[in-house]
Design a protein around this nucleic acid. Sequence first.
DNA 1: CATGAATGAGTATTCATTCAT
DNA 2: TATGAATGAATACTCATTCAT
Lengths: 220, 220, 220, 220
Amino acid sequence: METLTKRGRPKNEELLALRREDILAFATEKFSQYGYQRTDVQLIADGLGLGKGTIYRYFSTKEELFLATVDRGMVGLNACITAATASIEDPVNRIAMALSAFLGYFDEHPEVVELLIQERAEFRDRENPTFRLHREKNIGPWHTLLEELMAAGRVRTMPADIITGVISDTLYGKIFTTYFGGKRRTFQSQVNEVLTVIFAGILSDDERGKLSDYLLESQE
Amino acid sequence: METLTKRGRPKNEELLALRREDILAFATEKFSQYGYQRTDVQLIADGLGLGKGTIYRYFSTKEELFLATVDRGMVGLNACITAATASIEDPVNRIAMALSAFLGYFDEHPEVVELLIQERAEFRDRENPTFRLHREKNIGPWHTLLEELMAAGRVRTMPADIITGVISDTLYGKIFTTYFGGKRRTFQSQVNEVLTVIFAGILSDDERGKLSDYLLESQE
Amino acid sequence: METLTKRGRPKNEELLALRREDILAFATEKFSQYGYQRTDVQLIADGLGLGKGTIYRYFSTKEELFLATVDRGMVGLNACITAATASIEDPVNRIAMALSAFLGYFDEHPEVVELLIQERAEFRDRENPTFRLHREKNIGPWHTLLEELMAAGRVRTMPADIITGVISDTLYGKIFTTYFGGKRRTFQSQVNEVLTVIFAGILSDDERGKLSDYLLESQE
Amino acid sequence: METLTKRGRPKNEELLALRREDILAFATEKFSQYGYQRTDVQLIADGLGLGKGTIYRYFSTKEELFLATVDRGMVGLNACITAATASIEDPVNRIAMALSAFLGYFDEHPEVVELLIQERAEFRDRENPTFRLHREKNIGPWHTLLEELMAAGRVRTMPADIITGVISDTLYGKIFTTYFGGKRRTFQSQVNEVLTVIFAGILSDDERGKLSDYLLESQE
DNA sequence: CATGAATGAGTATTCATTCAT
DNA sequence: TATGAATGAATACTCATTCAT
């Protein structure tokens, strides 16, 4: 019957989504700034000029709010990698761009690194950490790509998940340790270091000769 | 320290034996089990059969107690690496053994990984995270070693700190991500994966041919 | 009330029918089920398919809504007693029927017992508890009746309000304590127990011999 | 080992019990004054000059504290009845004294009535309401007594639990309804009313003639 | 008229730290 | 010296009520 005579204040879906995004953006900032435990929900509400109850209308617990910020961060990462690699034809270059986009995303959004670390520390017992859910959802095409490159002799033959595993470890290790002690090097040099070592390890002898083609150029 | 000045029979051996080390060992277990925030000092006191006030006689705050457990973990790591590499003559093998000992230490002491993560999450603003203090204290000889290997043409020429940086990132990334989602592979295969990729990246062409010599042998 | 002035077909019979009575009936159920404090207005609105604001259009506060449910319960009690005694000629029988109807009402509507208890607990400071307002409004004719019975020698001579007081206490005591610990006996046996003891106490010696005439018959 | 060398601040059992009693006494006052819900634990702590945490050292939840006050009230009731009936030889008189002591206890401790009502309202779902636990624990000897009186022909023959049930209902009804609307009559006249009606109902014809012997004398 | 989004006062409970014994 | 009783600041979450649409 509601479909016929819509009564009462209509809800504005668009506005709701905007508000949700506003809350997540601000909560991301605060959680990354103070850590999960020390971020009072009141602080978030105040900072947004909202009542605390309003926050709880959108996220029923502080934990849910926090995990939603992590998810948002990973969605952003994925979008960034997709955008960066969309137009790259050459598969090896695609991989290089993906690594670069991955590091670039966290370079531009260090707050997301904090969220990952906080999640790891405070919710260690979660069965499926957010980053892992996203990794599993998005890793498939890269495995396919690597296997094609192996077949074409451009990458050394080995199980694809060893490669993505090491890459993943390296990248996560890098973002964690980088922000562990403050940035020490430029984004560009970080990317090149990773590419230099990892590509040297996985590329076939032929491709290894062209390694410098895949590095970021100095932006003088 | 009592061993020097103690004369006569102490009144209560048993109680004297309960000291810093006992507290730290138990606190390590609990902090890694429940996380920093959720570990009550009371819990630690109870588990040791001590009064809460006694804990505070050894460590003046909970934070100090926690950081002391992290430090204890790093001291243990260093001792482990030193012991593992002490009798190895060949420098490349020493490096391989150090990597192996590093991974092996955290494999045997996953609780120390937790401590590092907890420290990172809860005390992000510390100027000098414990692991970094220890890294800086112990990295020097390895840089020297690498430079000698470069001079001898066994390792590709590049700044030594890039190599140790990548190794460090890889290792930390590995210990973090490994315990992120539960262990996925055996210790041995982890070590070999790391060695395979990293040594392929840093060794000179000659040495790369002998890569398999440095891997752990299957323990069938 | 609409029945007088309504002309033409109302726009939405169904919605008009949802009114005070529907809200009160549902609120009675919920208040008795969860207690005053733990019954959210939202719960009532949801259960009725109404907006929360709509509830507030009928009752300006939660307290007002609650007290209206208690009043409704007492109105129902009164109607029940009136109906049960309307056609009884013999005054002693009328009293027996009134007691029976009283117990019967709460037997059939245990939710009203809850409302009385909740009112007592949550609004103790009200000058005039709902049940008392109704008692005072309806007790007069019973006093008159008792006095006539005393004059006729069928009831022992004593102040009528002592009798109604004890009866009232007994009945309220019974409904409270019955639902205190779950029902323990059948409605019929409860009525007979009360009648046995109370009538034995108030009836004259002559009438006491006929006591069994006033008891409920077994419904085998 | 503690038995030998007792270390640390010794606990003073006596003081602990005193403190517990102080807390219960004050909490009884406040719970009966404001009701369970509206009594802030802070209010109790403040009123006692204690920290809120101290209250929680003695009672781990507000609910536990509250239920302990109810239990304390029932223990007091029992002690009062025991003391009042201890030296009474005549069994019928013992019963009269017990009823009198019961009503007298609640007359002197109206706050306990409030606790019972609050318990009923807020914890309706408890399997064993406090008053019932105590009733069941203490009712046995009274049943025995009544059965002996029946055998001796002093009380009409009927199941003893019907008598104690009606008495219990009447008494609880009286204390509830009395405090429902404020005291209306003196303690003495209440007792006599109850005795008059109930004893008339349960005593044998012989004993009924001596009913006035069991009533409280006017205290001119 | 009807709605439900927004609000924010209100509250039980925890736990690091102190200090009297 | 060792203890553990006492403390009170800190904080997530609820829900009656309002009011813009």
